[in-house]
Computed example of a mutant assay.
Amino acid sequence: MSYNIIRFADATTMPWLGGGGITHELARHPAEGDFAWRLSVAEVQQDGAFSRLDGVDRVIVLCSPGRMVLHTPEPQPLERFSPYAFDGGTQIDCTVPDGPTRDFNVMTRRGVYVADVTTVVGARREVEVPTDAEVFVFCMDGVLSGGVELGTFDLAQLDARTTVDASHGAAAVVVLTTMPLG
């Protein structure tokens, strides 16, 4: 068993198109052009609008202890380490009442890939790797051990069943499955 580990320090960092934050891209497919899927960490530095991404499904997981509220148009307070899925084409404004936050983002091109994002907080979990999917483990906080060793905001792509030990942290497990053609 081997792991493709992407350290947060090696992420590609870019400012948001509309300002107000930066993104640290950890992984994407394909590497160039429009992505079919993308995994990243966003630093939300101030209140403002999210970029609209038509045809993209998004899952966001708040990693910081500070509050983040998405206005869709109804206020949707995010809970730390709890995945929230939404249509990337929706007009969304965000407020960060406690100041800057960081969150983990999973974006998939609708009709091409679908993402299942679950979290493991203060516990151990066996992670299966289906033959028809790509599976990633992201360290949202603290340190992960077990089959893979990750620090905060590091990412690992799994190629076989493994144990994720988040006893001293929090992890997001991402399963990306291709949509059938037709």
Rank of each mutant, 00 (worst) to 15 (best):
M1F: 11
N4G: 00
N4D: 14
I5T: 07
I5S: 00
I6L: 06
F8Y: 15
W16D: 00
L17S: 12
A27S: 03
P30C: 08
P30W: 09
P30I: 07
A31I: 04
G33A: 12
G33E: 11
G33R: 14
G33F: 14
A36C: 03
R38H: 01
L39D: 00
L39M: 01
S40A: 09
S40C: 00
A42Q: 10
A42G: 04
V44A: 11
Q45M: 15
Q45K: 07
R52P: 03
D54M: 13
V56H: 13
V56L: 09
I60T: 14
I60M: 15
P65Y: 04
R67T: 09
L70W: 08
T72N: 11
E74C: 00
Q76M: 15
Q76N: 14
L78I: 14
L78G: 10
L78Q: 07
E79N: 15
F81H: 09
Y84I: 03
F86V: 03
D87M: 03
T90M: 14
I92Y: 05
V96F: 03
P97C: 12
D98T: 05
D98M: 11
D103Y: 12
F104R: 01
T108F: 07
T108W: 06
V114Y: 04
T119Y: 12
G122T: 12
E126G: 09
V127S: 11
V127I: 15
V129S: 13
V129H: 08
P130N: 12
A133P: 08
F138S: 01
C139L: 06
D141F: 02
S145F: 02
E149N: 10
E149Q: 08
L150C: 01
G151P: 00
G151N: 10
F153R: 07
L155P: 00
L158T: 04
D159C: 07
D159I: 08
A160W: 03
A160D: 15
T162M: 07
V164T: 13
V164Y: 09
D165I: 08
D165N: 13
A166D: 13
S167I: 02
G169H: 13
A171S: 10
A172P: 02
A172N: 07
A172S: 06
V173K: 00
V175F: 03
V175W: 03
T177P: 00
